[in-house]
Write a protein that binds this DNA or RNA. Structure first.
Length: 894
RNA sequence: GGGCGCAUAGCUCAGUUGGUUAGAGCGUUACAUUGACAUUGUAAAGGUCCGUGGUUCGAAUCCACGUGCGCCCACCA
């Protein structure tokens, strides 16, 4: 074995061996099914450190469960990420100087370009996932846009259409002018920007003033809403006012309506209602039926409904023109600076306009035929009481606080607009039968066809998997929201809706066992998976969800292209090894909380891996030297075996609770066991008493097993060095383990440790050369016999020439009390008596303070009466101990 | 406007249902190193647990208020 572990030398061979073994595929495993569906990364580029964290978490779980003897399916895949990918490719093309890529290339050509980009990105991503060591079943690799998944999408759409849950409607939608497509409510990113709030009247004799930041939309107003309890305006409710030539352009009929949502305290207490260009106003129209006038078109220009004077103008031009008109006609009462909260398209970046359009929607509030519940109800139920009220089918969100976030979102949920006008995505599986002349007109012009569909619904349509036979059928040109397909992920990957035979075989893996994701996709993805699975399969998609935080840079900033602070996991692996990357992404994290990435952490992780390597190297080397091996169990052997059991117990508990960081922790975790207990104590002692082959083998073997989920590569390499016949990845997981207890072995060993530490401390304090061997005197009392047995160890680790047991205190000595035993280092020539006295006095004072606080407690009747007996007893024991130590220290002072 | 989270050593973070002399890693200081490992070892320094008040025999932990960060939701027109 080399002096230092060089990850690069081994990783690709080890990964190849795992793949060749076939154990990534559950078909080659037995036991109860256990499935983790990996969140498919977008094919928009390469993976970042957040993905590295996700992959590590899932692979830790998968390997842990596999070693427990389960039939583990870890399924990987990628997401075509409709808008994100098309927007990305279009942006790149624009940067290359192509002004309007859609016009320039046309549908087929542009799709080809996006496909090429996606394929390249997919290949990169898969390489990255493998490099991290992910034990995924590559034979079942999926893609949201491949054939099987596309068929599943169509199957789902068809069923929802038949149940009336998918419908097409002429409704207000969020429209990105730049992207020329709708976006869902969740795809909006709100930003604040300064704006002017104008207060005005429609006309001189209109009774109510209203305020707006968007005067240009007022050309499309059909009502004024006031709070029905508002005394000022009550009398107007129900009245209609006709306004001639508003803005110098259109006649309006304004109805005064009463609506509870209007805040009487804001502005004038009255709102101009523009149902065509505001979601809230559109909802008022649904309640009060006031009619809609669309004054802005899909290109952000004013329509003919805005009047001749405005038609064709941009929104900004119209804005100024209306303001001018109001001013000139003395209708403008006030202008105020304000901050406006506007929705922007997450992907295209522009401010979104609300427009009326015919689009496809998922009805979330409608009753599902035969179920008596709405989709919204199903989505809420799984988290609150379990699917169909069955507690065994409850989705548990970790950490729990995200449940609240999720439920809050559900309450605000509106019908989900699922059609998009971009080209990259699953085309809506709806065909329309057109008149021959219409068919000829639209068959090669999807834009014109879409405009036609906006106002005309052909009488005959077919929804399903394939184009109906016969002539003149044309498919809806729109594509589906990407989350429609990712919502099916937990079961479309198993063959549902596309491959009956496969679905039958893989059915047992659903509901999947464990799911993890970042909190930013709880709404987008988790919610949609729950919707799809409960509706289509009548069961939950997964039992447990673990929400992890975001990985940030060392200053706590997000990784982003503009900051140029991105780090490619492959570079990290190249330099530090995959194991170090895995370890560093886990340590310092806790569920749901963001974590920071910094290189010192990687150094630490790499050192950890190297330490393990050298521990193994030492154990295996020293086992070869015959005269240094022995059979009988020593105190150290028994102690390390007990510590091992405690560590097994801890690691199992942590993994059951998805507390990955604690399993590797320096306190009671694997780090403490490996580094402190094993390397610094047990192996150091073995240099004195020789190594026990059986014990050291057991320790090393078990340690490798426990570490394998976290550090799969180095552990597998060492396993091979141990000449084990089978792969570590399918070795038996150490399932037993006992929690740490105060056995005699632990107590005895602590005493030895404490004496050694005390001597070392005194030596350092007195400036004794580390190499210099000196004598120590111990007043051991009853412990004399036991300590005499351990003398060689104490002498070696504390670098003593002699260890004398005596009740007589040396005349001039540095002194300490360790584990209730007096320790003296007679150092006449080195010792400054005055200083040593001072040191002892300081220590005495410290313990006196401690003693006083303890006795203060115990004197307090309230404490002894009210505190639990065990606590009082514990405090009493502490006091006794402190007093004993104090007594000895005082004697030493003399 | 509503909701959620965070504040503990120089830095990054643990601290489970209230009972510790409040911990770890990194960093710092001193010393050491020819045989497992300098990607190391030994020892040490370092904390008003954000502030104020309250509950309690007892508060880093629970409650209230305040301060400072961060996040989510909501088209106050």
């Amino acid at each position: 074995m080399d002096k230092a572990y060089e990850a690069k030398k081994f990783e690709s061979d080890i990964y190849a061996a795992w793949e060749a073994s076939g154990f990534f595929n559950p078909d080659n495993l037995t036991g109860e099914p256990y499935a983790i569906m990996m969140p498919p990364p977008n094919v928009t580029g390469i993976l970042h450190l957040g993905h590295a964290l996700e992959n590590t978490l899932m692979d830790v779980m998968a390997r842990y469960q596999r070693m427990q003897g389960k039939k583990v399916l870890l399924l990987s895949g990628t997401d075509h990420a409709a808008v994100a990918t098309q927007a990305r490719v279009e942006n790149d093309l624009v940067e290359q100087g192509i002004k309007n890529p859609r016009q320039h290339f046309g549908r087929e050509e542009l799709l080809k370009k996006i496909r090429e980009y996606a394929e390249e990105s997919k290949a990169t991503i898969l390489t990255q996932i493998k490099k991290i060591g992910t034990s995924a079943d590559w034979s079942r690799l999926a893609y949201t846009f491949d054939e099987e998944r596309s068929r599943a999408v169509n199957t789902a759409f068809q069923k929802m259409y038949q149940d009336g849950l998918v419908y097409s409607g002429y409704r207000a939608v969020n429209w990105s002018i730049k992207g020329q497509s709708t976006c869902s409510d969740d795809e909006l990113k709100y930003i604040e920007r300064p704006a002017k709030l104008y207060t005005f009247k429609y006309s001189k004799d209109f009774p109510i003033s209203i305020a707006t930041t968007r005067p240009e939309t007022k050309l499309g107003d059909t009502a004024v809403a006031v709070n029905p309890k508002d005394e000022r305006y009550k009398k107007y409710i129900g009245k209609k006012y006709s306004i001639k030539q508003f803005g110098g352009a259109v006649d309006l009929i304004i109805k005064i309506i009463g609506d509870e949502t209007v805040d009487p305290g804001f502005g004038t207490g009255a709102v101009g209602v523009t149902p065509a260009h505001s979601m809230v106003d559109f909802e008022m129209n649904e309640k009060h039926d006031i009619g809609c006038i669309q004054v802005i078109d899909r290109y952000g220009r004013m329509t003919s409904f805005a009047g001749k004077a405005y038609e064709g103008q941009t929104v900004d031009e119209a804005h100024n023109k209306v303001v001018d008109w109001l001013q000139n006609n003395n209708l403008l009462e006030d202008v105020k600076d304000t901050i406006q909260n506007v929705g922007t398209s997450d992907r295209f970046g522009d401010v979104v306009e609300v427009l009326l359009m015919t689009q496809w929607f998922v009805a979330v509030n409608k009753e599902i035929p035969g179920r008596g519940k709405s989709l919204k109800y199903l989505m809420r139920e799984v988290v609150v009481s379990g699917h169909t009220g069955d507690a065994a089918q409850r989705v548990k969100i970790n950490p729990e606080r995200f449940e609240k976030v999720y439920l809050q979102w559900i309450d605000h949920l509106r019908d989900w607009c699922i059609s998009r006008q971009i080209w990259w995505g699953h085309q809506i599986p709806v065909w329309y039968e057109l008149k021959p002349e219409e068919y000829q007109k639209y068959k090669d012009d999807s834009e014109a066809f879409r405009n036609f569909l906006n106002f005309t619904r052909p009488a005959t349509l077919a929804v399903g998997l394939e184009k109906p036979s016969g002539d003149n059928w044309l498919q809806d040109p729109d594509t589906l929201d990407t989350w429609f397909s990712s919502g099916l992920w937990t079961f479309s990957t198993l063959g549902w809706g596309s491959n009956e035979r496969m679905w039958k075989k893989m059915r047992a893996f659903h509901p999947t066992s464990w799911m993890q994701m970042g909190h930013e996709i709880i709404f987008f993805w988790m919610a949609r998976m729950i919707l799809m699975s409960t509706y289509l399969l009548d069961e939950i998609p997964f039992h447990d969800v673990y929400i992890h935080g975001m990985v940030r840079d060392e200053q706590g900033r997000k990784f982003s292209k503009s900051l140029k602070n991105g780090i490619d996991p492959l570079e990290v692996i190249e330099k530090y090894g995959a194991d170090a990357l895995r370890l560093s992404s886990i340590i310092g994290t806790s569920p749901g909380a963001d974590s920071r990435f910094y290189y010192e952490k990687l150094d630490g992780a790499r050192n950890f891996v190297n330490k393990l390597w050298n521990i193994a190297r030492y154990i295996l080397d020293s086992q070869k030297t015959a005269e240094k091996t022995r059979k009988q169990l020593t105190l150290a052997d028994s102690w390390i075996l007990e510590r091992l059991e405690a560590t097994i117990y801890m690691v199992n508990r942590c993994l059951e609770e998805y507390d990955f960081a604690s399993a590797m922790d320096a306190t009671f975790g694997l780090r403490e066991f490996m580094w402190d207990d094993l390397a610094d104590w047990y192996l150091e002692i073995s240099k004195v008493e020789g190594i026990n082959v059986d014990v050291s083998n057991k320790i090393l073997e078990t340690l490798l097993k426990l570490l394998h989920p976290f550090l799969p590569f180095v552990t597998e390499v060492i396993w091979k060095e141990m000449k084990k016949p089978n792969l570590l990845m399918v070795a038996d997981w150490p399932n037993r383990g006992e929690s740490l207890n105060l056995s005699q072995i632990n107590v005895d060993f602590s005493l030895v440790k404490e004496i050694i530490t005390a001597v070392r401390s005194l030596r350092a304090d007195k400036g004794v050369e580390p190499a210099k061997k000196i004598k120590a005197v111990v007043n051991a009392g009853k412990q004399k016999k036991f300590l005499a047995e351990q003398a060689e160890i104490i002498k070696a680790l504390a670098r003593l020439s002699d260890l004398e047991f005596s009740a007589t205190k040396p005349a001039q000595a540095a002194a300490a009390v360790a584990g209730g035993v007096e320790v003296y280092l007679p150092l006449a020539e080195l010792l400054d008596i005055g200083k040593e006295k001072e040191r002892l006095q300081k220590e005495i004072a410290e313990i006196e303070r401690y003693r006083d606080s303890l006795s203060g407690k115990l004197v307090n009747k309230e404490f002894t009466a009210k505190a639990p007996k065990a606590v009082v007893a514990a405090e009493q024991a502490k006091l006794t101990e402190a007093e004993a130590k104090l007594k000895k220290l005082r004697e030493q002072l003399i």
